[in-house]
Amino acid sequence: MTVVTDIKRKQDLCRDVAETSGVKKMSELLKISGLHASIDADGTPKEILRGVDLVIPPGEVHAIMGPNGCGKSTLSYVLAGREEYEVTAGSVSFIGRDLLAMEPEERAAAGLFLAFQSPVELPGVNNANFLRTAVNAVRRARGETELDAVGFLKAVRAATKNLSMSDDMLKRNVNVGFSGGEKKRNEVLQMTMLQPKLAILDETDSGLDVDALRIVAEGVRNLRSPDFSALVITHHQRLLDYLGPDRIHVMAKGRIVRSGGPELAKQIDVEGYASFLAEAA
């Protein structure tokens, strides 16, 4: 597991830098407390999140695992501000602000990024144009100067090279006719360019072959710093092997039922979710 050791070392280094540089370290980048959310199912609300509690400190990578239908994707949508879901109770703070009061684009500007499980197609919308529009919208909101065409191209070419993406993908329309792997890489490219504080990766590893998985994981690892956290939703041990998460949370029936270190993921790999489901019941 050289990969993991590498990350650990880098992380430790980062922590040292953060601590020694005297920056006041916030202990909670994201804090979710007692979050309940439901969706309208044919006129009647169906509760999906039933009291989620979760804290992610800056610089850490957390993973959420759990059986299908446990509410993992719902949690990511609620955090990103999807309006079909109604939050019925609880609170979420992000960099000390009330996340639930913010519009989706404000959350993006504040540094929350969601890598979608199945990114939607935008016919006729040029990928590079979309990316530059997004980057500059976010930079504007953060009070940074906008990138001109040249500056943008330089940045995006560097990023695509790191992700083994061809420039050709920039000329195509957003996600239109992309293979599963291309879509996921495109999500990671956007993440790289938007420089979020928290990236939520919703099953970004699903449907990827080993090589694509490594490239995607590499993209996430490149971002690791004291100012970058990630919440990884996954079913698979393999992505976690690459990323080296700090904490693992098991979700069942709309709640986090167990949290622990990386060893928890290995336990699930061997035993499945049965015992956790029993806990949730």
Binding site: A80, G81, R82, E83, E103, P104, E105, R107, A108, A109, F113, L114, F116, P119, V120, L122, F130, T133, A134, V135, A137, V138, A141, Q190, L194
Partner: peptide
């Protein structure tokens, strides 16, 4: 589509 764009920071 709208949500995707807004999640990326577009108004």
């Amino acid at each position: 589509q709208m949500f995707y764009c807004r999640q990326r920071g577009l108004s």
